[in-house]
Design a protein around this nucleic acid. Structure first.
Lengths: 190, 190
DNA sequence: AGCACCATGTAAGTGGTTACATGATTCC
DNA sequence: GGAATCATGTAACCACTTACATGGTGCT
C-alpha cells in the first residue's frame, strides 16, 4: 500500500485560517510576512487547496456583505477543520527532505576555483545579514510577553528567534569558511 | 517561454562522478555518508539521470573487466560533463524553497497544547544531538589539513563544520524555547 | 537453505512552481 | 489615462518519492 503523504501545504493554509477568516490572497501575504523564512506557498497551491478544504468540510466560504471588500472571497475554518489541524500538529514532524544548494556547491568547490566559492559565501553573508536585520526590526515592534501566559505571540517569538539566531549563525560560519579558504587561522581547525 | 528549471539532482550526481567513476549504488551510498545532512537523492532519480547524462554526453558507461565487480555498472564523467558541472557551480545559488516542518508546527502551537510543542522540541533536540555526535566522530577521523593547500578535504571540512555548528545551534535554540514555553527566564525576552 | 545485503531499474503518483489569463481598484 | 497592485484562478509541466520487481552474492 502506498504511503499517503498528505500535503503539508494543506495544513499550512488551514493553520492560517485558524487564526481568522482569510482570502487566498490574504494567506499568501500573511505567509510572506511571517513565516517565509521557513515556509512558502504559491497561488497555484493555495487556491485549489482552499476549494478542496471546502469540499472536505474543513473550511467554508464566507458570504461577504455586498460592498465590503473588492473581489475578495474569504474562507473560515470549521470545527472539523480545527480538529484536523490539531491532529496534524501533534503528529511527529518530518526532518528529512532538506536541501541546501549553497552547501552543495561549496562541497563541490574543488571542481571550480576558490574565488567562486568565496563569492558564493559572500553572497550568502549578504543575504543572511539582510534577513537578520529585518527580523531584528520585526522583533522590536512586538509587544513584550514577559510574564504573560503562553499564546500566539509566544510561538511567533520562538520562530522569529530561530530566524534571528540562524541568520547570525549562517553569517558567522560563512565568514569563518572564507578564512579557511584563504588559508588563515580559523576555529575550524580543531 | 517557460523557465527551464534544470534539476539540481543532475549536478549533484555529476559532482560525485567528478571525483571518481561510480555506479548508481555507489553514488547513493556516497551521498548518504557525506552530504545527507543537506542533500539526498533517491534511486528513482539516480538511475534515470545516469542514463540521461550518457545520452547528453556528460558521462559515459565504463566497460568493466568481466569478473571485476558484481552487477555493477560504473559511470565516468566526460570533459563536457566537467565543463557543465563547473559552469553550474559558478551560477548563483538558489536560497528559496526552504521548508521546516518543525517550525511550522511550532508556529501553530497555540492551536494545540503546550505539552505537544515541548514534545516536538524534545524530539528535535534528540535528533540534532545524535547528528552532532556523529559529525564530531567523523571529523575526528579526518586527516589534518592545517597549512595544506585548499583541496577536496577543505570543502568537506567546511560543510561538515556547518553540520556540527548547526546541530548545536538547533539544540540550544530548542532548549531555550522549551524554557520560554515553561515560563522560565530566557535570553529570548530581550 | 535462508538471510542480509548488493545492485539496477521502472511505474505511478504526489507535491509543487511557473507562466499565463483576466479583471477590478486605487492612486497619481 | 496609465501604472501599480489587488485578486482569483488554471494549464502545463517538472522534480521527486514510493513501492514494486528482479536477480546476484556472501555468509552461516
Amino acid at each position: 500500500m502506498r504511503k499517503k503523504r498528505t500535503s503539508r501545504s494543506k495544513y499550512a493554509i488551514l493553520g492560517f485560517l485558524a487564526s481568522k477568516p482569510r482570502s487566498g490572497y490574504d494567506i499568501k501575504k500573511a505567509i510572506e510576512k511571517s513565516i517565509s523564512f521557513f515556509w512558502n506557498e504559491s497561488y497555484g497551491q493555495i487556491y485549489p487547496i482552499l476549494k478542496a478544504l471546502v469540499s472536505e468540510g474543513l473550511a467554508e466560504k464566507l458570504v461577504e456583505d455586498e460592498k465590503s471588500a473588492r473581489g475578495k472571497q474569504k474562507y473560515a475554518i470549521t470545527e472539523l477543520g480545527q480538529e484536523h489541524l490539531q491532529n496534524w500538529i501533534k503528529q511527529a514532524a518530518d526532518y528529512g527532505g532538506f536541501r541546501n544548494e549553497v552547501l552543495l556547491k561549496l562541497y563541490f568547490g574543488d571542481h571550480s576555483d576558490v574565488a567562486s566559492s568565496i563569492n558564493h559565501l559572500n553572497n550568502f553573508i549578504d543575504h543572511h545579514k539582510m534577513l537578520h536585520e529585518t527580523f531584528l526590526g520585526f522583533k522590536s515592534t512586538l509587544p513584550s510577553i514577559e510574564g504573560k501566559p503562553v499564546g500566539p505571540l509566544t510561538y511567533m517569538l520562538a520562530t522569529l528567534q530561530y530566524g534571528i539566531l540562524a541568520t547570525k549563525f549562517n553569517v558567522d560560519w560563512a565568514k569563518d569558511t572564507i578564512r579557511l579558504l584563504e588559508g588563515k587561522k580559523t576555529r575550524m581547525l580543531k
